[in-house]
Computed example of a mutant assay.
Amino acid sequence: MKTLQYDEIHVENLEVFANHGVFPEETSLGQKFVISLTMYVDTRKAGKTDCLEESVHYGEVSSFMTAYTKEHPRKLIEAAAEDLAETVLLQYPLLKGVTLELKKPWAPVGLPLETVSVKITRFWHTAYLALGSNLGDKEGYLNQAIKELDSAKDCQVEKVSSYLVTEPYGGVEQDDFLNACLKLKTLLSPQELLERLHEIEQNAHRERLVHWGPRTLDLDILLYDDEVLETEDLIIPHVEMQLRDFVLKPMCEIAPYKRHPLLGKTMTQLLCELEEKG
């Protein structure tokens, strides 16, 4: 479990009076909500230095959650929990993830229950992306894609490789590509990230006319944490990354010792093997 590699700070049963709900009496009169939060963080440095700046101030977090919950009403308790968990992660950079439970003890269901609650766990994730362009202003398209990713509140670009000029892949006659890779910190799920990449491609007027054909912008998810995923439109790790030097070379630049979760080999090892095969 990912949560086991981090220490935990707990806030239990913080009471907040807010106006979340669907019914008029909920939105106008309000009701009590109870918040429990587990913060996943490395407390080692704070424990060794006894310095508040090296930890997350649970009092500040509690005050922040109280104010935010009051000021941002939602119809659904699921939406209120999702919004609050994301905002706490964005507000406190030391946090790796959170488990948040939002309880609604006065839920208007007309039955003798103690409480209704939603409990979610959300983490920052690390993804590696491949970027490519071989139409128009190639460098401009890559720069714009990086800018769009980094300007999104739920994404942070941490490293970008240099740009590499490569011959086209796949046998279609076309201009040379400009390729790169980047390291991304994100709150998005793999599917959400894929959809975001498609939006950025569309902003660059990407047209999917010919497989492996020319394109203004091509964005691929190479790795997402150490997940292995296969859906109808997304496979992680990228199925051909170990066969492409224009992926492995920039990956070796930004993450030479990152291991392929299926092959168990580092990017450097994969590139050496590919070059040995010619």
Rank of each mutant, 00 (worst) to 15 (best):
K2I: 15
K2E: 14
N13R: 14
E25M: 12
F33T: 08
V34P: 12
V41D: 07
D42Y: 04
R44C: 13
K48E: 14
C51H: 13
H57K: 11
H72W: 08
E78S: 13
A81H: 03
L84K: 06
E86V: 12
L89V: 07
K96L: 10
P105C: 07
A107E: 09
W124R: 00
H125G: 09
S133A: 12
G136S: 10
D137I: 04
K138H: 03
Y141F: 15
L142F: 08
K159P: 09
L164S: 12
G170M: 01
G171D: 00
Q174V: 06
D175E: 13
K183W: 06
K185Q: 15
T186Q: 01
P190A: 10
P190W: 11
L193Q: 06
L197Q: 08
H198G: 02
E199Y: 00
I200Y: 07
N203D: 14
H205E: 15
R208F: 02
V210M: 08
P214Y: 00
R215Q: 06
R215K: 12
L217P: 08
L222P: 06
Y224Q: 01
D225W: 01
D233P: 10
L234I: 09
F246W: 00
C252S: 15
E253T: 04
I254T: 06
A255L: 04
H260N: 11
P261E: 08
L262F: 10
L270G: 12
C272W: 10
G278M: 01
